[in-house]
Amino acid sequence: MASMRDIKRRKNSIQSTQQITKAMKLVATAKLQKAKVQAVKTRPYFHKMHGTITSILAQSGQVNHKYLDDREGKHNTYIVVTSNRGLAGGYNNNVCKMVVNHREEGEDASVIAVGRKGRDLLKRRGFNIIESYNEMVDMPEYGDAAKIGTEVLKRYVSGEIDHVYIAYTAFESTLNQEAKLIKLLPLDLDDFAEEKPDEEHLESGINYEPSVEEVLDSIIPQYVNSIIFGALKESIASEHGARMTAMDSATSNASDMIDKLTLQYNRARQASITQELSEIVGGAEALK
């Protein structure tokens, strides 16, 4: 059995760890509240955007457009949204796992990393990191999303990459976040066909100014940016949610361990007292 001193030292160390995890949980909770509100605020923009594109595509049927054709190539790029800091449970790992599992044999995969953890993890897995943005993770702004979007579109249009995916963590609730991987480019017509467009649009022919192509030219980049922006916002909320949950369970695990160690410590103390007593009694007996 470990000595009393060892047990005591261990207990103290766990106690100070517990203080840290408790503090981190509080901080994450506070940040989560803010991030949650912001994530929710981006949704109306995204939904309206999605609705409009759906109705345009439903209307115009099979338009040939550079953002819509599916190319054969194997150059895939993943935009991976993770955090800069760890201690958030499985948050970063889940996102990276999605990407690793999605990679196929013979695919030429490259990564645009948003967040330091994802960059490091995927680099170790042998992905080619073409770009990494780390500063924007904590307070994403629309301009940041637009920067990534422009970069991706430029590479896509130039033919350097054939498919673009984005991996992020969707914020479902404080306790539940889900890693997701969605296809960004080319736009998948089937994704839009599932939803029924507004009837109002279908019966009345819509006009486009200047023209369908030019409207799509301008709307699709905005759509891409809005997905990236939404993903950034959802991810930061998820990060805080994941960290809060992780730190909460760390704190309660620490409590359990402290309880167990306290019990052990008391037993060891009792044992040593008993031993001392029996030694004294034994010594006294021997003197008789």
Binding site: H201, S204, I206
Partner: peptide, 10 residues
């Protein structure tokens, strides 16, 4: 104005 022709523009 009200009852405009349906239009999408940039």
């Amino acid at each position: 104005l009200y009852d405009h022709i349906p239009l999408i523009t940039t």
